[in-house]
Design a binder for these strands. Structure first.
Lengths: 211, 211
DNA sequence: AGAAACATACCAACCAGTCGGTATGCTGTA
DNA sequence: TACAGCATACCGACTGGTTGGTATGTTTCT
């Protein structure tokens, strides 16, 4: 869809970095052009406005992260429960390097744009919800396997809950200037999902003194 | 500390509303003054800079929300576990009205300011961590009461996890333009905390078909 | 009186977006 | 094959408006 190495692609990649580090409103078009190594003429050739770039960046984010997670190793597990836990362990494992490099572009943008920029809000929602939908299928299968099809929660709500925990973990990582607390929050989420699907494995191995 | 009705107070309250709706960078000093009904002279009389206002707003937010939650009814429960669950139920109950009115000022600000504005980051961290610290004490007591003092998690990490879930729930509420999913995420958190402290009450009452 | 609490006018820098122009490559046709 | 016709990709100076911040004067409170 977007040619690699093109000005358009370079601008979108520049937006990934700058918006995650500074936020959307604080990132100017000139700054974007500078980071991408293109001119303002190129910017407004490819995008009608700054908001248009934001929508395109959210969509490009969906593609890039979609491919990234599709290629991750946790999909190899034959058991859907193992794939869900594998996904969460993978999310924890990639909390590396500067905060701006592991946080979520669309989570950052929607925070600023949800009210005044409906098109950006929609693109961010589509990105988050689309990502959750992939996890939802594994959760649904795990529910069937565990015989908990009539629980008081749905596969969709649990999938979206994992995204809430991740987004919230990113905010704590930003507030605390490091990923440690975010990792512990994902640990809690892994413990929760395990308690839902495999409670018997928790009592003896993770919770320690709890009988 | 801040006299009610003063220009300073009006500016801080205006910041609560505008920053939560638009973000920090997108909110201008003129806009703040307009919403507060004061002039720019008053603004720069009380605050050295826009960043100074942001730090003061984060601190004022700590005071206002501190008093708000201190006055909430869940503290009346004699059992610390009930207080923790009561806190979470209260957080769910106040997800009412426009998104900007139930979301968190400091969670929004730290997202934009963590990298370029260290003073704002610190004030937001202090606000979140201070709020979590109050919950941490109830969690600690509940752990002692339930005999799970040597679990593989700490009262602090669980308290901060609740804040991660709440902050993430706010992002989902913004992305989906409504509080429904946020409420379901808090439901998952309540279920998790209950599974940690009172697993026997879940299997029969909440999880339905799960035996 | 003296300080604190404003108000008004102003400024240089920066902002998103525009516009006239150029370079390059593709496509249809004689 | 040669060339006209046209679209895409890009350039960078420019503009009108907004930005955070300042300088200076006036009012209000103790």
């Amino acid at each position: 869809m977007v040619r690699a190495g093109s000005s358009r692609e370079k601008l979108l990649e520049a937006a990934f970095g700058l918006v995650r580090a500074q936020g959307y409103a604080a990132t100017s078009v000139d700054e974007l052009c500078g980071a991408a190594g293109v001119t303002k003429g190129a910017f407004f050739h490819h995008f009608r406005s700054k908001d248009d770039l934001a929508v395109a960046a959210a969509n490009h984010w969906s593609e890039v992260t979609g491919a990234f997670f599709a290629a991750a190793p946790y999909h190899a597990h034959p058991d859907p429960f193992d794939r869900v836990i594998g996904y969460l362990a993978f999310r924890k494992a990639i909390l590396q390097g500067p905060v701006a490099q592991f946080t979520c572009l669309v989570g950052t943008m929607v925070q600023e744009a949800y009210d005044a920029h409906p098109a950006i809000r929609e693109a961010c929602d589509a990105s988050i919800s689309g990502h959750a939908a992939k996890l939802e299928e594994d959760i649904r299968q795990a529910m069937v396997n565990s015989g908990i099809a009539d629980a008081h929660w749905t596969a969709r709500s649990l999938a979206l809950h994992t995204q809430a925990v991740l987004q919230g973990a990113f905010i704590l990582a930003k507030a605390k200037a490091g990923p440690e607390i975010a990792a512990e929050s994902i640990d809690h989420l892994i413990r929760y999902v395990t308690l839902l699907f495999r409670p018997e494995t928790i009592r003896t191995t993770i919770m320690g003194g709890r009988q």
